[in-house]
Design a protein around this nucleic acid. Structure first.
Length: 266
DNA sequence: GGTATTTGACCTCT
DNA sequence: AGAGGTCAAATACC
């Protein structure tokens, strides 16, 4: 039985300036975990929609219009069987429920190859850095620092990655909108907030709006649009506002050995 | 022209 | 028979 991950994601047609600060907050959170935010972006973008169905009984209420079906872009080329379904919540139309089924085997193959390539290079380089790096993209700078951390695929076993490097600078503007820009954040995009899926069905509830209070207060001190400044900030999660995030709910679990103080990795 | 999305038809399961 | 899931031709987009 393929693992299933169930997410509930609150989204809106348009995000306010204040709410975009929250999105930038997500980027900082990702970097605080020792991950490149572009890595997180890559996790949810190689899906291809293959169908949608009206949800009977709810259509006439105007609440849940349809359920959309997605599968991995590389299903045919690499036999990846990962799929996901997206539908509006019948409780709150602003909440999207995302049901992930299976794992992206396509990227696991690539990760494996990259690790092998890395090991070869590591042997050749006697002056390699102490911190290990698993290069998951040919894109310069797209990598995960994993000193003393679990391998990436163990921390986030259900993460999906593209088999080809598709991250570009404009991805930042596609998802993490600059506060100064006016743009819509529509339901056609499935936010890449993914959690570890090791059990049959994990439940993850997250509201971008709940992050507002933290992020507005915190970000007033920062450049309001320059993400480069944000990620370059050395952040100890222990001392950061992130500790107050009600980010996950049971049974979602991070590896307890996962170090939260990531300041040493920057 | 290649790739992604739409959407009606079809298949499978209960 | 009906609902959920998938297929594939038509269409849209870049």
């Amino acid at each position: 039985m393929a693992p299933t991950l169930f997410l509930r994601i609150k989204t809106k047609q348009t995000y306010s300036r204040k709410e975009r600060y929250c999105l930038n907050g997500m980027k900082k959170f990702v970097s605080a975990l020792g991950l490149d935010w572009k890595v997180l972006l890559m996790m949810d973008i190689n899906w291809r929609k293959y169908g949608q169905k009206d949800i009977l009984g709810l259509v006439f209420q105007g609440v849940c219009d349809y359920r959309a079906y997605y599968r991995c872009t590389h299903r045919h080329t690499q036999g990846c069987l990962a799929t996901k379904q997206v539908q509006k919540s019948d409780e709150d139309p602003s909440v999207f429920e995302v049901n992930y089924r299976g794992r992206h085997t396509c990227m696991q193959e690539r990760l494996k190859q990259n690790k092998e390539d890395y090991n070869v290079q590591k042997e050749e380089d006697s002056n390699h850095r102490h911190a290990e790096q698993i290069v998951i993209s040919n894109e310069p700078g797209i990598k995960v620092e994993t000193s003393d951390l679990n391998p990436m695929e163990e921390i986030f076993p259900s993460f999906s990655f593209p088999s080809t490097p598709i991250v570009s600078d404009d991805l930042e503007t596609k998802f993490f909108l600059e506060p100064a820009k006016e743009s819509n954040f529509t339901e056609s995009y499935s936010p890449p907030f993914i959690s570890p899926a090791t059990s049959e069905c994990n439940y993850f509830s997250e509201s971008l709006c709940q992050m507002n209070d933290f992020w507005v207060d915190h970000n007033l001190q920062s450049s309001e649009s320059d993400f480069t400044n944000i990620i370059s900030t050395t952040t100890s999660v222990t001392n950061s506002p992130f500790r107050d995030w009600d980010f996950t709910t049971d049974p979602l679990e991070f590896d307890p050995s996962f170090p939260l103080d990531t300041s040493k990795y920057f």
